[in-house]
Design a protein around this nucleic acid. Structure first.
Lengths: 205, 205, 205, 205
DNA sequence: AATGAATGAGTATTCATTCAT
DNA sequence: CATGAATGAATACTCATTCAT
């Protein structure tokens, strides 16, 4: 039952990588991406300044990595959790729940994801063409399936609907993030899905 | 009927202020807020570097001013246009239309408003507590009125509904802004309002 | 006899430029090009760090400028002094004398010219294709003229002879520069020209 | 007649030392001393970074070693080749020929010797007081012997004459090194020795 | 002896802002 | 009011060297 002699160093490397990522989240959240210094991140991760560059190409890559890392895990988890669920609408509900839960559980991370990550068109293009694009595509495919299954109205394009859904979720998170007394983010899940599903207009009968 | 000797210089002053603001929008859109240099803005506005500081307190204030200036006008215009309209839902529809039209007409401005203006929590707090707060409050009041008038379902808080509406609009604009072939932003107005109003779920007739 | 209102600022600018150049020579000579910090140069020139960049493009440009500046003056002076001299060999003698006198008068400058300026092939190419090339071309033309005038043997190419002459002068300067007790550099002028002219072999009377 | 068990490892050690030296020459020539990284040298020598420090004290020592190594061999070879030659002038001619041949055969080495090795006064002092001093002393002694033998004019100091000779050779090499189409360096040997010996002035038959 | 991951000192350059003219 | 030359603080990144394995 011995550990592979090769695995140990890899584990250590991975552990250090995660420590640096965590430090980056904390520092970027605390001081903002631009104000946070690489030296701060290094200190917070308890490594030397130069070590950061053995794991990440530079400051910007560190921010991209935070983003991609989180989204990769989120997407994986989402795919796992919706695996056995038949209804596309239900699947969408699950994905949004995971979205909210992930950010609810880590306010610093939420800050970095919601704000620091959107500081320039170039950077937004970068992430949109990366993992974020993948996530949006997941949403889009669920909506398209919902239309095929007759659960979702067919008279809007899936891309458009995705924007509305993502925009609504995103703003809920933003609002929670900026609130003085935010409370639990996940409490918005049900009303949000209900609102999006049923629409905001008063239905007769 | 001579012009007041005082008004003339004031007009000139206002004209120069607007020139600087326009230059800031163009430069911030072209290079991004952080990459754009004050010297760039000055050159684009055809004034000396130091002159910028006679009109604005600094670079950040320039960005705030761009934002507040646009929102002030938008809010004024919105209030004017909804003045004679009775239905709160219809009023909301008008405000959203103005929102889209304003940004559709000026892509550089849209870029600055959607992206450059959101680069840090501190800055987002700044604008949220300023003109943006006022705009959101306008949306909220329309929704509350709609609830009182029985046009909008009462089982969601107006603040929450505001977030959903604003988030959806915001994301539609973002998506348009980042698209390779964006087309006309205002074409999303009708589907968007319809989607938000009726909900995305397929209704049995 | 009033000063042109335009000249004054230009004079001030030129004066500051020269102060920075002088500071660069002193600092590069004292600490070497690589060890000298731009902050050292700025301090020595009594200007702010950033001011250096209003006058020179960067550290390397500062070094190039020291070199080009000196050689420009040397070439100008050489051309003036040989203007009324008919014999090409005598002209060559004058140019070499100026060469030695210029460096003899400023040991720090000599250090920068002889050593700091030769630190890499890239840099040597840079200066060889600049003012140094111009200087070498001057030497070459004098030698070619000497050949035409029958003063200098015709069986060597002017370029080759230039290399020998320049190499000899250069090494004399180098040797003087590295000597513990250097004495006056110009004392080598007569023997050097004599040696090059007559050759080192014992001539049978 | 077995190899000493001690000699074998020593041979291997020497072989690795030479491999590192070769790698240093190549890398310093390719990128320049300052731009070349120790990691580059290590990679080129196919050893680990740390191994360099088991053979050389540091980067600077590596450069010194390249220089000293070459000069040691050159001096040894020169002494051997002039051993049976009587005429000091002829001996000098042989030494200069070896000088040119050595550098002609290895352009990268020539680059390092001629350029990288002269980047600072400190470094020039270092090598001048080392093997280069020994080489110059060899030249000087040959010239002094030439004077005693009546082959070389007595009215210049041997040190001075050494500078002129070395300077001329050095510049010929430099010129060859920087030339776009250099050709064979050794073709300059005869004209050079002739020029130095007979002088450049046209002699009346 | 050999390795190579980790270290951390060191600095050129930018640019928002000021203020003498 | 306007100018624009001057200021100087602030920081990501490199790479020679070390040392635990």
């Amino acid at each position: 039952m011995q550990e592979s002699a090769e695995l140990q160093p890899t584990d250590q490397r991975e552990e250090k990588r995660r420590r640096i990522l965590r430090a980056a989240i904390d520092e970027f959240a605390r001081k903002g991406y631009f104000s946070a210094r690489m030296a701060d991140v290094a200190k917070s991760a308890a490594v030397a300044d130069g070590t950061l560059y053995l794991y990440f190409e530079g400051k910007e890559h560190l921010l991209v990595s935070v983003f991609d890392d989180v989204l990769s895990r989120a997407i994986d988890r989402a795919r796992t959790e919706i695996a056995g669920v038949a209804s596309p609408l239900e699947r969408l509900r699950i994905v949004v729940r995971l979205h909210l839960e992930t950010l609810a559980a880590d306010r610093s991370l939420a800050h970095v994801i919601q704000i620091e990550t959107r500081h320039s068109r170039r950077f937004m293009n970068l992430i949109t063409r990366g993992r974020l694009g993948e996530y949006l595509e997941l949403l889009r495919s669920l909506i398209a399936e919902g239309q095929e299954a007759g659960e979702i109205r067919r008279d809007v394009s899936p891309g458009f609907a995705t924007n509305v859904v993502f925009g609504a979720v995103d703003e809920i998170v933003n609002s929670w993030l900026l609130a003085d007394d935010p409370g639990d983010l996940t409490r918005f899940h049900a009303p949000l899905m209900d609102f999006l599903s049923a629409g905001m207009v008063e239905h007769r009968s």
